[in-house]
Amino acid sequence: MILYDFEHERPGSLQDVAARLAELGPTAGILAGGTDLLPNMRLKIRTPATLVSLGAIAAQPPGTDTDGWLRIDALTRLSEIENSDTVRAACPMFARSAHVVGSNQIRQAGTLGGNLCQEIRCLYLNQEHDFQFVAPCYKRGGDCCYPYPKNEKDFCASVFMSDIAPALIALGSDIELVGANASRRMAVEDFYTGVGMTPTVLRADELVGAVMVPPPPPNSGWGYHKSTIRGGLEFAMVVVAARVALGEDGETCADARIVIGAVSEGPSRARGAESALVGAAPTPEAIAAAASAAVAECRFLPHHNFSVEYLKQNAEVYLRRILSEAFGRAKTGPGKGGQDQ
């Protein structure tokens, strides 16, 4: 139960929403699927005075822009993404990453925009704060950090756990932010700050409009894995996502994008590991070296009772596995062999 009073509005268009956000500023909360916001309001992690609902606005169906990029409306439900023939054909990794979120009920309600803008997580934060951890932490506007008592103010060592963001970054996707007066477009990668206090660059008067995924390069393949303990109804221990492409010779790695998610304040690109792969043959040794390098260059925080040591071990094994899968798919041709099981 949400134990405080708040207003609820339901504007009829995206422009009206943006206008209301501009008027209300940070006191507004944007309600789409509600699977992240409402539990956080119950836990008083967020206490918006006004909920601006997107309930009256219909999502545009997935389509292709004139530049050939796939466009997915931010209001698209995750269940629609995982089951969309268009998405599954054009970018199966995207569909896969939507499929592994939460549970079917969560995916029927949750939206793409909501998933990408979800609040960071921390066992101390995700509590009722009724009688334990009562004093608000930095993230809740207070003056302490429970897991890291020595942290400076404004430093929230928490974990950003979107399953989809790493896949979109690996795919080289863009995100469109809609404001009252202007829209802006940027790489999904740049949407994330890596700062726990403010995980995204989204301003209080903006909302996510859409995600655009580029067509895959020739001879490309993907690999994705979400590590969990029970396989469902669970945020990730580690997410790894990769998209690779082979050169015209079909033997040499021409492009690689490797992303690790759910282990720090934002998804991380492993650029060092990527460049080591490019130009080389993706032998098992090269893949193992890339996996190891990726783990070494990304930041890991202990989270949800997992030690950094184990998170790194798990990430390295699965990076190796998904890179092998990705190169395997690249050899069989773009987009092939990538449908959801």
């Binding site: 066992l123 101390y124 995700n126 509590q127 009722e128 334990q132 951890f133 303990i229 029970r230 396989g231 469902g232 109804l233 669970e234 945020f235 949800h304 009772n305």
Partner: peptide, 18 residues
């Protein structure tokens, strides 16, 4: 003495799939 995982999400009981 404080509990960190105070919900079904972070206290992982098996689901039917397990």
């Amino acid at each position: 003495g404080s509990t960190l995982n105070t919900n079904w999400l972070d206290y992982r009981m098996p689901t039917i799939h397990n």
